[in-house]
């Protein structure tokens, strides 16, 4: 279970980093989204993977940690807002600069 989760995050991060390093804003935005998915999953898993455990310690035995869920909710909301902002900014750069290069200039 842990190794599967680690592999999922690793693939997401690798794809995200690859896309972020591209020269056009559309792929960069996609890469940022993939990175934020990976980060959210990682944050969620930092409370350890377990199933069927209660979130409150009412009886002895394993309990799930509810805090990472609160953290990841905050991170999702912030990530969502930031992605929306960068999409609009990228569209605007496309309109104002006449191309979708991250530098605002076409390759010579």
């Amino acid at each position: 279970m842990e190794s599967l989760a680690a592999c999922v995050i690793a693939v997401l991060v690798a794809c995200g980093v690859y896309l972020v390093l591209r020269a056009r804003t559309f792929t960069v935005v996609l890469g940022l989204s993939l990175l934020s998915y990976a980060v959210n999953l990682f944050l969620f898993f930092s409370g350890r993977l377990m199933t069927g455990a209660p979130p409150l310690a009412t009886s002895p035995g394993p309990t799930a940690d509810p805090l990472p869920q609160a953290l990841v909710l905050t991170a999702i909301v912030i990530g969502f807002g930031m992605t929306a902002f960068v999409v609009i900014l990228a569209l605007r750069a496309r309109g104002e600069l006449g191309n979708d290069h991250v530098d605002g200039r076409e390759d010579k």
Partner: peptide, 10 residues
């Protein structure tokens, strides 16, 4: 401003 802000944001 758009060009530089885009880099800054990313």
């Amino acid at each position: 401003r758009t060009r530089n802000a885009l880099r800054y944001v990313v």
